[in-house]
Amino acid sequence: MELYMDGKTPVFDLAAGILPGEMHLSYGQEAVAAMCENLTENDWVHAGHRPHAIAIACGVDLKGMAAELLGKKEGLSGGRGGHMHIYDRSVNFASSSIIGEQMPAAVGFAMAAKARGDNSIAVSLIGDGAANQGTFHESLNFAAVQKLPYVCIVEDNNWAVTTSKAQSTAIARNSDRAAAYGIPGEYVEGNNLERILEATGKAFDYVREGNGPFVLEIETFRMMGHFHPDPAPMVPQEEKDSWVDCVAACRESILLQGVLPEAELEQLETEVIAEVEDALTFAIEADYPAPEEALERVFASN
């Protein structure tokens, strides 16, 4: 047995550096965020512990989010939430890092939407691993009984930390589980932006028309480990080779279909990169909160 002696220590410290904590990146899963194209500004979204691509597409303030990732005072939550807990009230966006907890909360968003009668809907995004939590069953049954305008999007990246979907889930597709609640379920293959746009558009229309909830499972790829810098040694090489980088594929498709001339696309990319760099510079230069600010915001009123 390999002995772990005093003085022989791990080299990586999660607590150190400018970006501390267990950072779960959505690199590879960006195409799912295209669903935001089909949302209105009155709709509500609840993400999980890997919320960043969705947050950006939902219009979450980029500078505020970048500052929150670094735990700065100017962050969306003043540095209280961090990268697993992105909240932006101005765009009806929330997230939570307890697996599966976003589902009942989004069902509640849908209840409020139905009560307001403003034709808005609620969407939650879970990973395929979260579909084995009790909240999946409880939320879908409740939402179906109440006929709520709720869409459960399952981001199927095939992995829950180091456990594969086949190891943890009794059936191949969580969208098939929708049948248990008498509601529609659909699977979208290929991490493909256009298919995701079409499928989410259909699902959102369906629930917006008052037909009750919808389960949409979207194949996507977690092109990193569970968290940065986990190299995902459990993922077989042939699976890694099969990953479709949806951003690169989308770029290719735009050019192939002549949606934009290459020069305009490059201009757009330059602008986006500048915007992101601007947000990062803002975040890096921002101040940390004063330590005693930790005691503020526990309650709405004192």
Partner: peptide, 16 residues
């Protein structure tokens, strides 16, 4: 630990 949820940001967490 004071009666607050654990804050993310290092200076606040270390304070608690």
């Amino acid at each position: 630990f004071p009666d607050v949820p654990s804050p993310f940001s290092r200076p606040m967490e270390q304070y608690c």
